[in-house]
Design a protein around this nucleic acid. Structure first.
Lengths: 108, 108
DNA sequence: AATATAATTTACATTTAAGTGAAAAATATT
DNA sequence: AATATTTTTCACTTAAATGTAAATTATATT
């Protein structure tokens, strides 16, 4: 039906599937750990996003990593992380950094 | 006088130099982040240890990494980390893992 | 357009890792 | 042996991560 990268799963479904609160997904988004499609204000996630989020959970809960470390490894283009991290997350993060560099003080 | 790897600096001196509590160095040791020489019960650190600890502080405080992530990267033989991490820390950690694997339940 | 519904955002509470202080225990020194 | 120094243990503090619930905003429906 859907391929890996089609963003079609709404946030509640993803949260339920991962066994976490949707609040956590908003939180991750603030740190650019995931990059859902916005249609209006609604968010849609791909199968690839879900796999990635599962891996993030594993890194955090089984291995004890924190959010920022995962971000740092994305930025650093760490092979192990990049292998699992969706291309668009990397791109979004790059854009975010570029915007910040260009003196955009109005953003977080 | 001393070379990079001679373990000759006592804990208080290292703590003062790094501007941290010596208690924190004991804490790091529990996580195998550093591997001082024990002469009797006293601990001695090398110049290399001090440089490494300075880098660890930077990762944690400037970049926002946590302890466990640094450990994971040592285990994973991450190039960036290994570049800064003393050889003996890597070895000690390896030994620690080996001992744990071999069913030594009496250790942490 | 007013109302209902659903998603998002905000605010606050809880939990756990990281770090620290102080007391107790162990060891070394005079 | 008495004193000083280092280590260990226990308990507390602080901040990140995330849950809960209320407030806000958007969208759909009548």
């Amino acid at each position: 039906m859907f391929n890996e990268v089609d963003k079609s799963y709404p946030i509640e479904l993803v949260a339920d599937f991962l066994g976490i609160n949707s609040r956590t997904l908003y939180y991750y988004e603030k740190f650019h750990l995931v990059c859902p499609l916005r249609r209006g204000r609604k968010r849609y996630y791909s199968k690839e996003d879900i796999n990635w989020l599962e891996y993030v959970r594993e890194l955090m809960y089984e291995q004890g990593m924190n959010l920022r470390s995962i971000i740092i490894l994305i930025k650093r283009r760490d092979a192990v992380i990049l292998d699992r991290c969706p291309e668009d997350v990397v791109l979004c993060y790059k854009n975010y950094l570029a915007r910040k560099e260009n003196g955009n003080k109005t953003m977080e």
